[in-house]
Amino acid sequence: MDLSLSAAELAWKEKARAFAETWLFPNELELELTGSLPRATKDRLRAAVVESGLNGINHTRAVGGQGCTQMEQTLINEELGRATGALWAVVWHPALPLRDGSPDQIRDFLTPSCLGRRRACVAITEPDAGSDTGRIVTRAERHGDRFRLYGEKWFVTTGDEADYVIVHALVDGDPDKPTLFLVDKDTPGLTIQREPKFTHTYVFGHPEFRFEGVEVGAERILGGIGQGLDLTKEWFVEARLQIAANCIGAATRAFEEASRWANRRVAFGKPIRQHQAIDFMLADMAVEIMATKSLVYRVAWGIDHGIDRKITHAHASAIKLQASEMAGRVTDKAVQILGGRGYMRENPVERLNRDVRVDRIWEGTSEIQRLIIGGQIAKRGPAIFTGWPGDNSGA
């Protein structure tokens, strides 16, 4: 079994690391202390993404992307995840369901998004509907060959930066007809109600949108009427894979910062890493990162080798759960090792500790991931998680 990374994979990893260190890290403190970056800085970052060849890594070159494999995407997202303030978000990944669009939708939405000329946000969550998408009430009423959208969407990440919205709505209010609509943000009737502040600092916002008779044509339906839930699940899988990789990067940087500090800081006559209490924490952090990275890389490898999409859905929940909870434990230990310095916002460890907290919530809470995993075990048996590709002994 060859577990080494290929030259192409290593090249993508190095490109992403160089981008993070050159373009993201230098903007961390300004973002943290002011809460935002100037428009000119955001524009420079957008241009840098294209110049670095990191735009649209999750889509094919035919539509303006980079055609990266899942392993290459994982390596890239891991390196970008080292940046605080979710600055990794400046490197856009147009939502995977866009590839299922019509030729006109690919021309007008997907390709410009891959090239950095447009940007989408995905609007699913509502005041009374989060992980339970069955409670979504945003509706799309038919009026001839057009639709009018009514409803409210919360936590629309990057909604302030995007110029169009992928909206999950029920055609005629029918729960059996969940449908995705492509809506330009400047369409009459679409307004931003407010932009709440959250625990973490984030380079873009998470505004709340209101749809009051927002009119779109049938040509703006992504996929087809009633396909919204399946396409939304596909987007969730992609998002969970990215979060898992970002978490590895965040945990690794926190661990490295804590390890360096433990070598430098002297207490009671010797570096604190020579005290068993600190050394054991570092050992636990290292093992957690190693185990999680092994799991995430395995799933990425499986996707690239044609593993069944239903299994991918189950595995995406497993790695999102493991990576997000691991990152929380590792960054918390890093803060403890750095002591007072680890509690200062100017320290990347403090910022990372706040940043990763949301990873146990968005794109499906830890509890939802456990429900999915438990359901998959009941449906397919333990081997879906305990087995190994090619080994059917546990089936």
Rank of each mutant, 00 (worst) to 15 (best):
D2S: 05
A8N: 13
E9A: 13
E9Q: 15
L10E: 15
A11E: 15
E14H: 10
A16W: 12
W23E: 15
L29I: 15
L29W: 12
G35H: 14
P38E: 09
R39Q: 08
K42D: 01
V49G: 05
H59E: 05
R61D: 06
G64Y: 04
G67H: 11
C68P: 00
Q70V: 04
Q73M: 15
E78I: 05
R82A: 12
A83E: 07
G85S: 06
A86P: 00
A86R: 02
L87K: 08
A89M: 13
L96V: 12
L96I: 14
P97K: 12
L98W: 06
G101Y: 01
D108P: 00
L115N: 10
R119Q: 10
V122F: 15
V137H: 01
T138I: 07
R139W: 04
A140F: 02
E141T: 14
R142N: 03
F147D: 03
Y150C: 02
G151K: 02
E161C: 01
D163I: 06
D163P: 03
V167F: 07
G173F: 04
L180Y: 09
V183N: 02
V183R: 04
D186I: 03
T191V: 02
T191W: 02
Q193M: 07
H200S: 07
T201P: 01
V203L: 11
F204G: 01
E219I: 00
R220I: 01
L222C: 04
G223S: 06
G224L: 03
D230A: 13
D230H: 04
E238H: 13
E238S: 10
Q242S: 10
I248K: 01
A251Q: 08
F255S: 09
R265E: 12
R265T: 05
A267F: 09
F268N: 09
P271K: 08
F280I: 08
D284K: 14
A286M: 08
E288H: 12
V296R: 01
R298E: 15
R298F: 10
G302D: 13
I303Q: 09
K310L: 12
A314F: 13
H315N: 05
I319N: 00
L321R: 14
Q322G: 08
S324P: 11
S324E: 09
E325D: 12
M326C: 13
G328R: 14
R329K: 15
R329Q: 10
V330L: 08
Q336L: 08
I337E: 01
G342K: 10
G342C: 08
Y343Q: 13
R345E: 10
E350W: 15
D355L: 11
D355Y: 08
D355V: 01
V356A: 04
G375C: 11
A378G: 06
T386G: 06
